[in-house]
Amino acid sequence: MPAQDVRELRIVGFLCNWCSYGGADTAGVSRFTQPTDLRIIRVPCSGRIDPLFIVRSLMNGADGVLVSGCHPRDCHYAEGNFYARRRLEMLKRFLPITGIDARRFEYTWVSASEGQRWQHVVTEFTRRVHEFGPAPTFNPASEADWNALAVQAGQGQACPCHG
């Protein structure tokens, strides 16, 4: 099922300027067709990507977040992706406890010459997000849902720590 045939989902991409943004450009120059869901935010380096940008996107209702930087050792700023790798890995591992499907967030490395690889990454990730469908929103969508939540909270759902 090609992603284009269904309603677009909201996928946010954070790409470093030197490798992955260039890789996405290369894919464009080579006319490698990709699903249109992804919107790319350009940052200088994957080291600039605060994991909280990803959380913010997810909290705001993004259905998927894709981060890509230079391959380890190839960082334009020498060390940015090494820091990014630790930060992003921690976020990815942390998400399950919040109930947010960690597979909605992915990080990878794509160099400026890897247009084909970028096409593959975007296509695969978009396909995956479409498989999960729209992400549940943390804030209720309607007034009725808000009220239901308020009632539930007032009664106090069973908490594993406090009985």
Binding site: I100, F138, Q152
Partner: peptide, 23 residues
């Protein structure tokens, strides 16, 4: 309690935090 919570499904955990955070 930690093990019990972690064993829950994503949907259950999500609903739990939704409710808890509304408090």
């Amino acid at each position: 309690c930690q093990d019990e919570f972690e064993a829950k499904s994503d949907a259950e955990k999500f609903a739990f935090w939704q409710e808890t955070m509304s408090r």
